[in-house]
Simulated scan of single mutants.
Amino acid sequence: MRGRPGPDSGVPRMARHDWWGVALEAPDPRALARFPAELLGWEIVKEDADGAAAVPPEGLGYLGFQVSEDHVPPVWPARAGAQRITMHLDFEVVDLRAAVAHARELGAREADHQPQANVRVLLDPAGHPFCLYVDADTGQAASS
């Protein structure tokens, strides 16, 4: 992409300028940033009145969180006239039961509609949907 530096493995990770990410809106972005940080073992690297960002231990991607006082959580599954999902995050796991339990301990809740046996749709504390899934070829049974 023009205007974006190429990869430079000689520069310390946090000093690089080729990061990329996804930003989610929430009424309390700093509180919401703690959810994926604790769930995924990520670090919060930015936190101020307008938002926060969480980064994984490796790589150059991040999840950003920005304040939206009028945040309306999307509904799952979609319903006419309700706020639709415009995106969601997917995370592959090796133990679906343990991953779902951990997410619930941190404040997530399971969606009422679960479309696949190897996937669990959950809602983060601000109502954003995300999926935890296991490879369908592993044969692991899903649980709620």
Rank of each mutant, 00 (worst) to 15 (best):
R2Y: 12
R4A: 14
A15M: 11
R16G: 02
R16M: 06
D18L: 05
G21V: 06
P27C: 07
D28E: 15
P29V: 04
R30W: 04
A37H: 01
L40K: 03
E43G: 03
E43M: 07
I44N: 00
V45I: 12
V45G: 10
K46S: 11
D48Q: 06
A49Q: 12
D50M: 14
D50Y: 11
G51P: 01
V55I: 14
P56S: 10
G59I: 07
L60F: 10
L63G: 04
L63M: 09
Q66K: 11
S68K: 09
S68C: 13
S68V: 06
D70A: 08
P73Y: 02
P73H: 03
V75K: 03
W76F: 15
A78I: 04
A80Y: 13
I85Y: 02
I85S: 11
T86E: 15
M87G: 12
L89V: 12
L89C: 05
L89H: 06
V94F: 11
R97N: 10
R97M: 05
R97E: 13
A99I: 03
V100E: 02
A101W: 04
A101C: 07
A103I: 01
R104V: 15
R104K: 14
L106W: 06
G107Q: 04
R109A: 11
H113P: 00
R120K: 05
L122S: 04
D124F: 02
P125M: 09
A126F: 09
G127K: 04
P129G: 00
F130I: 03
C131T: 00
C131F: 01
A136Q: 08
A136T: 06
D137A: 15
A141E: 14
S144F: 09
